[in-house]
Nucleic acid binder design. Structure first.
Length: 270
DNA sequence: CCAGCAGCCTGAAAGC
DNA sequence: TGCTTTCAGGCTGCTG
């Protein structure tokens, strides 16, 4: 469940280690989700960016600039290590660098993906091509959020998870942000004042994740194999049956559009 | 075009 | 103890 804070943590670690390196070899699992990895052979890494939960490795080669795009899915891990990492049974893709190091992509559940596209041409990746603004960008405003939510009749939380109103939110930070804002995940509309609160809350929830190196509930580790610490600071996700930190009401959990959803039935009344 | 949902995946934990 | 069931859920692509 790497969401924006987890992917950004990995990006910050990998960028200085990868920029300037050339890919001299690569391989992948047989699934078409991972085979585009080998297209990067021969190219040099010029930048490591991120858009929402997508890691975007910018590549320069004889056939022009490309993006090597990695989505970690639920259980994806990236690491810049040595050949020992190739032995792992969950290895899905690997890239050998010109100094002998190997960038590996492990993913037990194979919900992750690798894409190879011309620089900036994300049209073949539906979610990425329609993705909303970065949450810390000035363009992510209450007016924007209010307008976006009005475009769909789906539950508010489901819209946040779609990546369209704003980029990078997954199940954990969606529950956290809605609790912080005091808004029901099952709402279908969003007033202007609530949109104001939700923008602040989304930034607060994600910033906590960034400040604490990500949230590790089961699988997440950063590119150096370290767990995050934000799981100790969650107010909502995973706290069903426990008292709400704000009002003491017992937190509840239910399925909302096939996603486990925790909320406070009093502070987040519909 | 949109809402809703099956399907993809496997390891850990719970249930029997 | 050991087998079976449940659960975790981001994204794609299909259906009505």
């Amino acid at each position: 469940m790497p969401e924006l804070p987890e992917v950004e943590t990995i990006r910050r670690q990998l960028r200085p280690r990868l920029v300037g390196s050339t890919i001299v070899g690569a391989g992948s699992h047989w699934s078409a989700k991972f085979t585009p990895a080998v297209e990067a052979i021969g190219d040099e890494i010029s930048e490591v960016e991120r858009r929402g939960k997508y890691l975007i490795i910018e590549m320069e080669g004889d056939d022009g600039p490309h993006d090597l795009i990695v989505h970690l899915g639920m259980t994806g891990r990236l690491a810049a290590g040595d050949a020992a990492d190739l032995a792992h049974p969950h290895l899905r893709a690997w890239w050998r660098l010109d100094d002998g190091r190997i960038l590996t992509f492990h993913d037990a559940r194979r919900f992750g993906r690798v894409h190879w596209v011309h620089r900036g041409d994300w049209s073949s990746i539906a979610t990425l091509s329609a993705i909303g603004p970065e949450p810390f960008d000035d363009s992510f405003t209450a007016e924007h959020l209010h307008r976006q939510i009005r475009l769909s009749s789906r539950h508010l939380k489901t819209q946040l998870l779609s990546q369209r109103p704003v980029a990078g939110i997954g199940n954990i930070y969606a529950d956290e942000a809605l609790w912080l804002a005091g808004i029901s995940p099952a709402a279908r509309t969003l007033s202007k004042p609530r949109a104001e609160r939700l923008v602040v809350a989304i930034r607060e929830a994600l910033q906590s994740g960034l400040d604490n190196g990500g949230t590790t509930l089961r699988d997440y580790v950063d590119s150096e194999g370290h767990s995050g610490a934000n799981q100790h600071r969650l107010h909502c996700y995973g706290r069903s049956g426990e008292p709400c930190e704000r009002c003491g009401t017992i937190m509840r959990k239910r399925e909302l559009d096939a996603r486990g959803t925790t909320w406070c039935p009093l502070c987040q009344i519909r």
